[in-house]
């Protein structure tokens, strides 16, 4: 990567829930147009970390800035502004189950301060549904979709906003090999098309291999290691080797 400008900057973040300290001390940068993969055991606080980035949770200590916004001290209007440029794919999809796929996709767009016209929105919907190859589900309810389809619709719902930053929480987990490859390709394609910078949380090694420019391994609330796919892969640390054993 040529770019050196950091779009997300995190320094010495700490987050506890009551007595339970989940994130002890985490620092990292996300560069412009970079794909940063975060790996780590279940329950180490990966989701908690990216929820801090989108302002769903507030870190207890440390510094966190996303673009020009200081997340440690941000008011509701600024936060809303920021959120319109950051896409978040929830681990469970979080589709609105009382709305059709189409309305799910239109929901945020219609409520933008400078909302596109209804016909532009229609075009956008068709475009992103094409992208995730689910055009035929437009009028279905989420309950009628399979798990993988839900995930892809959720992905479409975030991509329709043309975000500058994407936070993917396990985009390929629970999908078959072919679909998860397609998703990995889509992540790359979206970056190429819209110059998106992304943080990708995943356990899926083939997804890591395909998408990662850089990898961070989280363990017990701290950064255990950082580097490119090949660097990390050669690590002597047993915990880290375990992730790559299957490859």
């Amino acid at each position: 990567m040529q770019q050196t400008e950091a779009i997300i900057k995190a320094r010495n973040l700490k987050k506890s829930f009551g007595e339970n300290t989940i994130i002890k001390n985490v620092s990292f940068d996300l560069m412009k147009e970079e794909n940063l993969v975060i790996m780590g055991k279940s329950g180490t606080g990966k989701s908690v970390l990216i929820k801090c980035i989108i302002g769903l949770l507030v870190p207890d200590e440390g510094e966190l800035s996303v673009m020009d916004y200081n997340l440690m001290d941000i008011d509701a209007d600024q936060l809303n502004e920021l959120r319109r440029t950051v896409g978040y794919l929830f681990q469970g999809g979080a589709l609105y189950d009382s709305m059709t796929v189409e309305r799910n996709l239109k929901f945020p767009l219609r409520r933008f301060p400078d909302a596109p016209s209804e016909s532009e929105i229609d075009e956008l919907v068709d475009e992103v549904l094409e992208n995730v190859e689910l055009a035929h589900t437009k009028h279905k309810m989420p309950s009628e979709l399979s798990g993988g389809m839900k995930k892809r619709i959720a992905l479409a719902r975030t991509l329709i906003m043309k975000p500058k930053i994407m936070l993917y929480d396990e985009p390929t987990t629970g999908l078959d090999v072919i679909t998860s490859n397609e998703i990995s390709d889509l992540i790359l394609e979206m970056r190429k098309k819209y110059n998106i910078s992304s943080i990708i949380i995943t356990h899926d090694i083939s997804c890591v291999d395909k998408t990662a420019d850089r990898i961070i391994i989280l363990d017990k609330g701290e950064v255990l290691n950082e580097g490119s796919f090949d660097e990390i892969r050669k690590s002597n640390d047993n915990t880290i080797r375990a992730y790559f054993e299957s490859v």
Binding site: L56, F90, A94, F107
Partner: peptide, 11 residues
């Protein structure tokens, strides 16, 4: 199911 969070997150 995080649908409320999803709404806040979409601005």
């Amino acid at each position: 199911t995080e649908q409320i969070d999803a709404m806040s997150v979409s601005g």
